[in-house]
């Protein structure tokens, strides 16, 4: 029996599924970490993803080209990012209210338009061009590893590249520094002559684009060319949790997404042993524990610094 569990867990299928599940979350998280760095609490990602998925499906269907669908989702992402920044940055509205409203708006508008365009049963029965799966030569021959890494939607591989590029952008470009400074200490940025508001706009637009991509992947890659109402299925919240978990570091956010993907895959594969609903709670609980840990360790750090100061003051 035990043998059986372990062989089910360490089946290549588990890890292949982990990659599949992690990718849309990771893409959105890459966007979310931009707004997080810029000091905007963005819980509207779920809506951004959902609208991205819809626009991608519509674009792909009407242009008869998956590439056009992706492009449409990215362009739309820019618009959504602008809209989000207009409220949160320019009008200084409550980020939470706007995020909440954006999610509900997305739910409503995509369902409404989907029914108007495709009818009650969504895109099933319509030919929405999707993205092909990619087999990596050579690697696919390696036992186990080949089954895990090869044969995914192209987005899975693009995400790896994007994680690296985002890491480069955030930590190794001047603008990355400015965006981080705009969230952590906007007045500092202002005193060195850069406009923190502008950085927040840029972060917000980037977030929109990444969420658009995540959505495009959902409808054109993950589900092979279909739009389903509410298909973002709380992935925006999961991505948000990843960002918090990873302290907005791109590779770490990807690892967090893999963790979610792993528990997702595990839940599916272990259904006969443990309820997938129970395994599903684990990543969220870990995120809460992480938050508590971060707060406590920050307090510890402050106390330690004060103690050092004290010793220097009164030797």
């Amino acid at each position: 029996m035990h043998n059986n569990i372990w062989s089910t867990i360490f089946d290549p299928g588990t890890f292949s599924q982990m990659l599949r599940s992690a990718t849309p979350v990771a893409l959105a998280a890459l966007g979310g970490l931009m707004t997080e760095h810029a000091g905007i609490m963005n819980i509207g990602m779920d809506g951004m993803i959902l609208m991205g998925a819809f626009v991608a499906a519509v674009g792909s269907y009407f242009c008869a080209s998956a590439a056009m669908g992706i492009l449409a989702a990215m362009l739309f992402g820019i618009l959504i990012g602008l809209f989000f920044a207009l409220f949160t940055v320019k009008l200084k509205s409550d980020e939470f209210i706007i995020g909440c409203a954006l999610n509900t708006f997305a739910l409503g508008v995509t369902a409404f338009l989907s029914r108007e365009i495709f009818g009650l049963s969504g895109t099933s029965g319509y030919a929405v061009p999707s993205l092909p799966n990619v087999t990596i030569p050579l690697i696919d021959r390696i036992p186990f590893v080949g089954k895990v890494l090869s044969g995914h939607s192209i987005f899975v591989y693009v995400t790896w590249l994007l994680v690296f590029l985002m890491w480069l952008f955030v930590y190794r470009t001047p603008m990355g520094l400015w965006i981080r400074a705009s969230g952590e200490s906007p007045e500092t940025l202002r005193t060195v002559g850069k406009n923190p508001e502008r950085m927040k706009w840029i972060a917000s637009i980037l977030c929109g684009v990444f969420c658009g991509l995540a959505g495009a992947h959902l409808s054109l890659g993950y589900l092979n060319g279909s739009f389903v109402e509410g298909m973002s299925a709380s992935r925006g919240y999961i991505a948000f949790a990843c960002v918090i978990f990873a302290a907005a570091n791109p590779p770490r956010a990807y690892i967090a997404a893999l963790m979610f993907g792993f528990f997702d895959a595990l839940g599916l594969r272990l259904q006969s042993y443990v309820s997938s609903d129970l395994t599903g709670t684990i990543p969220y609980l870990i995120t809460i524990i992480m938050m508590v840990y971060v707060v406590v360790s920050r307090q510890k750090r402050r106390e330690r610094l004060a103690k050092q100061q004290l010793q220097r003051l009164e030797p």
């Binding site: 981080r180 400074a181 952590e184 200490s185 007045e187 500092t188 005193t191 060195v192």
Partner: peptide, 8 residues
């Protein structure tokens, strides 16, 4: 109040 970014 120092104008520094703490994590940099």
């Amino acid at each position: 109040h120092f104008m520094l970014v703490p994590s940099f």
